[in-house]
Design a protein around this nucleic acid. Structure first.
Lengths: 238, 238
DNA sequence: AGACAGTCGATTGTTGACAATGTGAGCCGG
DNA sequence: CCGGCTCACATTGTCAACAATCGACTGTCT
């Protein structure tokens, strides 16, 4: 997946990319594999195995895993093992309640500064999401939805807020991916996003607040029904 | 006993408590040193030096530093060096605005569940803080104030919220410590906390919201004046 | 003198080997 | 048949050495 490790295998695709460090690339690769569902929730990640797969030593791999642990995607037990987290109903509920708060805060920050670029960017991402939904491409729609919301956070320029969003985004994506694999279609949320963007561009802040609250409540509910079934087996995170 | 080998009594003040892994202890020790001001903002942290001081190898130390980087206390430049962050005016402003949002959210979560234990816990921490302020013990008052607010977050039981608070707490403490060293007394904030707790135990949620907003605005303003002077030299964080 | 290339030292990034720990299988005694 | 014990294995934790990279210094050429 990465460089042919010790150069021995010669020309791998991106053999020489010492532009930055290995750790970042490994973290990205691992995260992608987890969020993509290649590694299922609850699965154990063995350092030596992964190190071989990525063609690196355990050192950088360890640091990459530590990063994913901080992001809330992995859970490690000393001397025992590291597993992909399985989100519980409460976890998902927490994520959604947090999103309501953070996103309203984001709009507070940017409300007076919603210029043309912001409006265009928001509409463009809504259209992209709509296209994915119409095409019934769930994987793409997950990414598109994350980018729609992420655009709002980015627009605030509030570094701490963005950082916080990013710390939640992974878990949200993890949940959506699991939901999608188990349930198939994530549901026709097209209307919801249209309303969301319309409110975001309106001049009625209170209406937007309500819309965000409802938006999340809908997503959360649609969610819990599905999760309630698998309450037992999944590994809890700390 | 542990990593064996070394054991040469070299480890400085670090106690021999290998109950868990080294990494956690090193992270705690380093964080304490930074927040305590033993290591000043902008100072460079050299892995080999620190490793010797802590009596461990660079491996665990690296992971500890990576953790502090994630907490926002350090900033690393590949192949070049790692430094203690110096917070800018904007950084502090972001921290305070974020606190307003998170703390109001925390009270929303717990508002209906404020039982006797919560009320007593809050009052106890307010009294502890008051005692520190009256004794003019600034270092202790910083800790006491963090514990007062932390108690509110803990009481919510909202793991994601608590996690987010913890990711901010370090930076806040870093700033307070720097402010204290430069300015001496942090100011008589006794009345403010009395009002804060009173509102937190009242039945007027809107009044509490206003109080929190004002509380933070006061702290933030008291803050910016001081920071505006040192705008230049300090290292910015990414 | 000024600009530029090469080199050297300092620091981090990476590696492979070794030590410590937790877990489960198999064995023994009851 | 069951409960506790032993022990080997799998996995993570740690270490010391090696390699890559960056920044500054120096010496030379124009």
């Amino acid at each position: 997946m990465f460089g042919g490790s010790k150069d021995k295998a010669g020309g791998s695709v991106l053999a020489r990319v010492p532009k930055s460090t290995f750790r970042a690339h490994i973290a990205d690769g691992l995260r992608a594999a987890i969020l993509n569902g290649d590694i299922e929730p609850g699965a154990q990640l063995v350092e030596t195995t992964l190190a071989d797969q990525f063609g690196v030593s355990r050192g950088p791999l360890r640091e990459a895993m530590r990063q994913l642990i901080d992001e809330g995607l992995l859970i490690a037990v000393p001397y025992t093992g590291t597993h992909v987290v399985g989100l519980s109903v409460d976890d998902v509920r927490e994520i959604y309640s947090m999103r309501v708060t953070l996103e309203i805060f984001a709009f507070e920050q940017i409300w007076a500064r919603r210029d043309q670029a912001f409006r265009q960017g928001l509409v463009a991402r809504r259209d992209a999401l709509t296209a994915c939904i119409d095409a019934e491409d769930d994987a793409a729609s997950i990414v598109a939805e994350l980018q729609l919301h992420g655009f709002v956070y980015e627009a605030t320029g509030h570094k701490l807020l963005i950082r916080t969003w990013e710390s939640i985004r992974g878990r949200l994506q993890l949940y959506w991916a699991a939901h999608h694999r188990a349930h198939g279609i994530r549901g026709p949320r097209r209307d919801g996003h249209d309303r969301y963007v319309a409110m975001a561009l309106s001049d009625d802040f209170d209406a937007l607040k309500s819309e965000i609250t409802d938006h999340m409540a809908r997503g959360g509910r649609q969610t819990e029904d599905f999760l309630r079934g698998r309450e037992a087996g999944a590994a809890k995170h700390a």
